[in-house]
Design a protein around this nucleic acid. Structure first.
Length: 724
RNA sequence: GGGCGCUUAGCUCAGCUGGUUAGAGCGUCUCGUUUACACCGAGAAGGUCUAAGGUUCGAAUCCUUAAGCGCCCACCA
């Protein structure tokens, strides 16, 4: 053995050893070599983690590395504890995300997605994803992930899609899916509707314009309205006031003449209008504002669409404005209002503007026909599960955030106007598009209208609609019997940024489809930031490639660094220093092993021993450390467990045990004492390796393989120390 | 506008249900190299635990208030 540990010479070899053993697959796990009290020899207790599937087209980032490390720690720990461990990996087609990435690629080549046929575009993205599909998987292997690759699933696998369709049909048949015109968040660049979660807000300095709307019966009198979006007045169909507002009481029901347009519009009374804000009178544009849409519904107002899906004014906006971009139309409307004497004043105004979370374009609220899930009944069950402790959040903080969001949840728009995803299984009857059939294949005949002429739905599901079903969909399809054995799974470990997107949806969909919780625990890890606590992003150029770190320092060092410094819920600043510190630790392990090997020559493990006081002390400390690490791992206190293992190894095993046994082995006072020293040395080393194995699997396995132990297989499938 | 969280050594952070001299990693300083490791060993400096009140025999830890910072949610035009 060399005096320096070189991960490059070890990691690939060790991963191959594990991989070829088949032990990542719970069906192949060997029984323990010897039965220990209270534990069966065979590994029967199921323990399952469903891996959050990385996007099929992307390389891993540090967040993935943290995910893989934490989940691998849990899996390896449970495997050593004697459980039948299944860590089920996969890949996510990641609908919108992937399409956006692909569109950017097209743009660089001077192309646009709108110039391709649906099928062609789908095929192009498919090929692109296939070409990159193995990247993430191979990188996970480099990190030491001990998942069962034989069960790997892709979110577009036909059997997964089938389950997604079944759930959709069930929801539909039970009245929990509806389709209808609603105000949705429309991104004019990507030309798709987005869910409320896919909208980000930004505070902007804008203006509030005060406009005169004259009364039809007395054109010299007028109502004053305030708006941040004057261009939408072209689609106004009413002005609303609060019914309790004395100022306007007598005007309710009368008509106003809409400036610039000349249309007569009604004054209506609606509770949604605040008395204090602005002038207390609101222009109502049902087609382009969520509140206005609802007011429109209540008062049966006409909906006039003046902004098109491309973000430009429509014909309905009038000849002067049609074809203009929204911002241009705004300028022109203000100009015209001013010149015609309708503009009273404009004042600076700060408010939150809705933006597309991907491209940052201003979201146009727009009326559109979309598919929605009635979410309240599903949400109730998930909330109940948390209250009853069927699903436990490891961190109280995220439980609170979850509860708050669930209490205020709104219906979920699950249709997207993109091609990359699972097509919504609906067929519209050609002669009457308000009639449709839910079916994955083209139906022969519509049972309602008798039509045999169908047009397929072109919208696809929100990617989270299908990934929300991931835990049961994977287990129902990966291998026969898995669902019965492993569901509900043990823990869902993922980043807090997808708490609502994914975790909440999995809970709602899981209960709905299976009647059971998809997982017993939710563990949310923090975001990895750079050393200055900045978010890592390509534009800032501060992204750290985990594989480069592995090349430089070894996978064990990266894993240990990620875990060692991170408490459960806070974000974690990452710096190379921390990895280097753990690289040194790996070297320390290496050299302790080297020393041990040299000093275990001729050791007879069946010979009699007689412990000294120092031996007793170190064994006691080992037992206590084992207990603490066991408890911390059971409670998801990864960093505490990691630090205990680190400290015990370095400052107890190396600094005390090795220093003590060194003399006794080199210059033994008796054969008995030498054998005892050797025995203690080996025992403490082996147990330390076990304790460290979940965190640093490669080096611990490599050392274990070189130790003089009879009938050994692999450290990975050894037995966790009892702590006694 | 609602909700949540953070503020502990130069830096990044631990500190679980309150209990003897407040911890770690990195960094700094001193000394040490004949054989496991200088990616090491021995030792040291460095903190009025944001502030002010309160509960308690006892508080970094619980409560109240304040300040600073951060995050999430939200249809006041």
């Amino acid at each position: 053995m060399e005096s320096q540990y070189d991960p490059k010479k070890v990691e690939d070899k060790i991963y191959r050893l594990w991989s070829e053993s088949g032990f990542f697959n719970p069906d192949n796990l060997p029984p323990f070599a010897k039965a220990t009290e209270g534990k069966p020899k065979k590994r029967t207790k199921p323990y399952c983690i469903i891996m959050p599937p990385p996007n099929a087209n992307e390389a891993l980032h540090l967040g993935h590395a943290l995910m893989a490390t934490l989940e691998d720690i849990l899996i390896r720990y449970r495997r050593l504890q004697g459980d039948a461990t299944l860590w089920l990996p996969g890949a996510d087609h990641a609908g919108f995300e992937t399409q956006v990435v692909f569109e950017k690629k097209l743009e660089k080549q001077g192309q646009s997605r709108f110039q391709f046929e649906r099928e062609t575009l789908y095929q192009m993205i498919w090929d692109y994803v296939q070409a990159n599909k193995d990247v993430a998987q191979n990188q996970l292997k480099r990190l030491g992930a001990s998942c069962d690759w034989s069960r790997s699933k892709f979110t577009l696998d036909p059997d997964i899609v089938k389950i997604v369709y079944q759930t959709f049909e069930k929801l539909y048949s039970e009245g929990l899916i509806y389709r209808g015109p609603r105000i949705i968040n429309w991104c004019p660049k990507h030309q798709t509707g987005l869910s409320d979660l896919e909208v980000k807000y930004e505070d902007r300095e804008d203006k509030l314009w005060y406009i005169k709307y004259p009364l039809v019966e007395a054109p010299d009198k007028f109502i004053e309205v305030a708006t941040t979006r004057p261009e939408t007045m072209l689609g106004d169909t009413a002005v609303a006031v609060n019914p309790a507002d004395a100022r306007y009481e007598k005007l309710i029901g009368k008509k106003l003449l809409l400036p610039l347009v000349g249309r007569e519009i009604l004054i209506v009374a609606d509770e949604a209008v605040e008395l204090e804000f602005g002038t207390g009178a609101v222009k109502v544009t049902p087609a382009h504002d969520a509140v206005d849409f609802e007011i429109g519904q209540r008062h049966k107002l006409e909906t006039i669409v003046v902004i098109g899906q491309d973000g430009k004014m429509t014909e309905a906006a009038g000849a002067d404005y049609a074809g203009l971009k929204v911002a241009e139309a705004r300028e022109k409307v203000v100009e015209n209002l001013k010149s015609q004497g309708f503009l009273i004043k404009e004042e600076p105004y700060k408010h939150a503007v809705a933006l597309c979370y991907k491209c940052g374009r201003v979201i146009e609220p727009m009326v559109s026909e979309q598919w929605f899930v009635k979410i309240k009944p599903l949400a109730q069950r998930a909330v109940q599960a948390v209250n009853k402790g069927e699903v436990k959040f490891v961190s109280a903080k995220y439980e609170k955030i979850f509860q708050h969001w669930m209490a205020n949840i709104r219906d979920w728009n699950i249709s997207r106007q993109i091609v990359w995803g699972i097509r919504i299984p609906v067929w519209y009857c050609n002669k009457d598009k308000s009639c449709w059939v839910i079916s994955d294949k083209k139906p022969d005949k519509c049972p309602k209208c008798g039509s045999a002429d169908f047009i397929p739905e072109t919208d696809t599901f929100d990617t989270w609609f299908s990934s929300g079903q991931w835990p049961f969909a994977t287990l129902q399809t990966a291998k026969a019997g898995d669902f019965e054995k492993f569901y509900p799974t043990a823990v869902m470990e993922t980043g807090w940024d997808i708490l609502f997107f994914w975790v909440a949806r999995m809970m709602m969909m899981g209960f709905y489809a299976t009647g059971k919780e998809p997982f017993s625990f939710v563990y949310m890890h923090g975001l990895i930031r750079d050393k200055d606590k900045q978010k890592m992003s390509k534009s800032k150029g501060n992204v750290v490639n985990p594989l480069a770190v592995v090349d430089e320092n070894g996978a064990d060092a990266l894993r240990m660094a990620l875990v060692f410094n991170a408490a459960s819920d806070s974000d974690l600043p990452f710096s190379e220093d921390k990895v280097v510190a753990q690289k040194r630790f790996a070297n320390k392990i290496w050299n302790a092993a080297r020393f041990s090997l040299q000093n275990l020559e001729g050791f007879n493990d069946e010979a009699k021993i007689q412990l000294t006081a120092a031996d007793e002390a170190i064994l006691k400390e080992l037992a206590e450390t084992t207990q603490k690490i066991t408890k911390d791992l059971d409670n998801f206190n990864f960093h505490e467990a990691a630090q205990s293992a680190y400290h015990f190894f370095w400052h107890s095993f190396c600094d005390k045990c090795i220093e003590d046994t060194k003399k006794r082995i080199k210059e033994p006072s008796s054969d008995l004492d030498k054998t005892t020293a050797q025995s203690v040395l080996l025992k403490v080393l082996v147990d330390s390796l076990k304790l460290l194995h979940p965190f640093m699997p490669f080096i611990t396995e490599e050392v274990y393989q070189s130790l003089p132990i009879k009938n050994k297989t692999m450290l990975m499938v050894e037995e966790w120390p009892s702590g006694k």
